[in-house]
Simulated assay, not measured.
Amino acid sequence: MAHLYLLSIFLSLLLSISPSLSSNSEGNALHALRSRLSDPTNALQSWDPALVNPCTWFHVVCDSNNHVTRLDLGNSNISGTLGPELGQLKHLKYLELYRNDIGGKIPKELGNLKNLVSMDMYGNRFEGEIPKSFAKLKSLIFLRLNNNKLSGSIPRELTTLKELKVFDVSNNDLCGTIPVDGPFASFPMESFVNNRLNGPELKGLVPYDFGC
């Protein structure tokens, strides 16, 4: 009986610390993000790496299992770049980075965020191409990348995102043609204005990226 009692205690302890262990890896990812950012107004002051659980940090929301599900840093006056560590936030549903001064390329590792519902990164200085890895975000409903400095063409792989309802890449430096398959059949032209795009593709023809 004593052995069974000790075993039950051990299992209880293991269950109690497992969420913290998971959150610790997510906390490490968020702290790595913080190290890449300039934060003149101390929006990230509470992001203390000494704390095991990042769920106590401002701008971070977690679920009942202490997994990070939301990152709210919109309009926070931060600058810098993003890194691949963000792809470790496997339970993230909302990535809100809009209206800041974040630049550099968008990490392809964001395509690992399989539970992502909304990605709002408009109003920054992101450059380079839209990652093709975003095609793995099958739960994505909102994707707003407008008002950046993105270039290249719109990845055709994004036409497989059946849940995508809002897509905005206006005010960038994108080129080529606009896809018409999948969810792109319903996006308004306002989602694409102020680029170097050449209008919608013709059904049944191989897309050609003019000027890319």
Rank of each mutant, 00 (worst) to 15 (best):
G104C: 07
L116D: 01
Q88F: 11
K114H: 15
K114M: 11
K93M: 14
D101W: 05
N115I: 02
E85L: 10
K90A: 15
L82H: 08
L113E: 04
G103D: 05
K90R: 14
I78E: 07
S76R: 04
L92K: 01
N75L: 04
K105Q: 15
K105M: 13
R99H: 10
S79F: 10
E85R: 09
V117C: 02
S79D: 11
L73G: 00
G83W: 06
Y94T: 07
S79Y: 08
G87E: 09
G103N: 12
K93F: 03
T81E: 05
L95T: 01
S79A: 15
Y98E: 15
L89W: 01
L97G: 04
K93D: 04
D72A: 11
G104L: 05
E96V: 04
N115E: 08
L71R: 00
N77C: 04
H91S: 15
L89C: 09
G80K: 05
N112M: 12
E109H: 10
L86T: 01
L97R: 01
P84D: 15
L97I: 03
G74Y: 03
E96I: 07
S118C: 03
L71G: 00
P84T: 10
G104K: 12
N112Y: 13
N115F: 06
G83Y: 09
G103T: 08
G87N: 09
Y94R: 11
S118R: 08
L116A: 10
K105A: 15
G83I: 10
Q88D: 12
N115T: 00
E96G: 02
L95Y: 14
L86W: 02
K105C: 06
R99K: 10
P107W: 07
L95K: 07
K90W: 15
I106D: 05
D101G: 03
L82E: 07
Q88C: 03
D72H: 09
I78P: 01
G87R: 11
N100E: 13
E109M: 04
L73Q: 02
L92P: 08
N100G: 02
L89H: 04
T81G: 02
I78A: 06
E85M: 08
E96L: 11
L86V: 02
L95F: 14
I106Q: 08
V117H: 10
D101H: 12
L73H: 00
G111A: 13
L113M: 12
T81I: 13
L113A: 11
L97M: 12
Y94M: 14
Y94S: 09
L71A: 06
K90S: 15
G104M: 08
G74T: 01
N112Q: 13
L73K: 00
D72E: 08
G111L: 14
L92H: 02
G80P: 12
V117N: 10
L71E: 01
E109K: 06
L95H: 08
G87Y: 06
G83C: 08
L89D: 01
L116S: 01
D72Q: 09
G103L: 03
K90L: 15
V117A: 05
S79W: 10
L97P: 05
S118K: 10
V117M: 10
S79V: 12
K108R: 11
G104V: 04
K114P: 00
I78D: 03
L116H: 04
L82G: 03
K114Y: 14
N100P: 04
L92G: 03
